[in-house]
């Protein structure tokens, strides 16, 4: 485990300090074009309020362009191994729950079930802070239908976010089509991939999720789920690795700073980076 990155100040584009004024301008112009092409809002280019799924964690959000998993882009989530699939799904669901508004969320799954026959549970989604009433489950028979349904859902502009499970293979053309559909719809598209999946070339971020021991109170009761979240790739941002905590009472993320420190005894955790929020009783 690598120690979590200290929250760095937002890194400005690395200009050569001696560069001429015209070169600076050219670079800025190029960046502006790039951002327009990729429909990504780089800070300072567009004055809009950030539109994205934010973790609410400065330490993590600063790694992402504009401080959030931006809309109109594709985000790839893969478990580290087959056994970490529930953790990856938990991560995906808790992110989906942060989609604003009350518009429906589409989950497109292959009909044979997840992790050998398991089904998403409404009460389980509720536990992760996602209102199951918002969820529309779409079951598809094969990958062709999955891709079609994903594009259809994005193009309709109805849902607040779309999450899709995709198989191992993903060719460049498909990946580009999905990216274009997400961009035009200005919606976040979360892809859940198998552990050994080929990377989606056009994904804006790629996350690898593994389970980690839950945080417990002094009576040994689970208080927060923990996941090892690695941001392996981030366009216009910086990769990183964190032990992410999710509090299933307040539905907030925090960072398990202490666990990464081998000097502390196991099972004891220092207060997370973000100050404690009021937790519901029980």
């Amino acid at each position: 485990m690598t120690p979590p990155h200290a929250p760095p100040p937002h890194a400005p584009p690395p200009h050569a300090p001696t560069a001429s004024h015209t070169r600076d301008e050219t670079v800025r112009e190029l960046r502006r074009m790039l951002s327009r092409i990729e429909s990504l809002h780089i800070e300072g280019v567009d004055g809009d309020a950030p539109r994205g799924l934010s973790f609410g964690l400065p330490a993590l959000d600063t790694h992402l362009p504009r401080g959030a998993l931006c809309f109109g882009a594709m985000h790839e989530i893969a478990p580290e191994s087959e056994a970490d699939l529930p953790a990856a799904i938990g991560f995906l669901i808790s992110l989906l729950a942060r989609a604003p508004g009350a518009a429906p969320l589409l989950l497109i799954l292959e009909a044979r079930g997840i992790a050998r026959n398991a089904r998403l549970s409404g009460h389980g989604l509720n536990t992760l802070g996602l209102d199951p009433g918002r969820v529309v489950l779409v079951e598809t028979a094969n990958e062709k239908d999955t891709l079609w349904a994903t594009e259809e859902a994005l193009r309709s502009g109805v849902p607040a976010a779309v999450a899709t499970t995709l198989g191992v293979k993903l060719n460049l053309k498909t990946s580009q089509r999905l990216q274009v559909a997400a961009r035009e719809a200005r919606l976040p598209l979360l892809l859940l991939r198998p552990p050994a999946a080929e990377n989606a070339a056009t994904a804006t971020t790629r996350w690898r999720i593994a389970s980690s021991e839950a945080a417990r109170d002094r009576f040994g009761l689970t208080t927060r789920w923990r996941w090892r979240a690695a941001l392996e790739r981030c366009r216009n941002g910086r990769p990183g690795e964190w032990i992410l905590e999710f509090d299933h009472a307040t539905h907030r993320f925090s960072l398990a700073a202490a666990l990464a420190d081998p000097a502390l005894p196991e099972g004891r955790s220092a207060p997370p980076v973000r100050e404690q929020t009021a937790r519901r009783a029980g």
Binding site: N117, T127, P132, G133, T222, H248
Partner: peptide, 28 residues
Amino acid sequence: SETVTLAAPQTLHWPPPRSTRPVLMFPH
């Protein structure tokens, strides 16, 4: 404690979570 229904355009009401439940459940 839950069931899947044919999707209607209306949003279904869910009670707030009471106890911790797993996100994936085995039907059997």
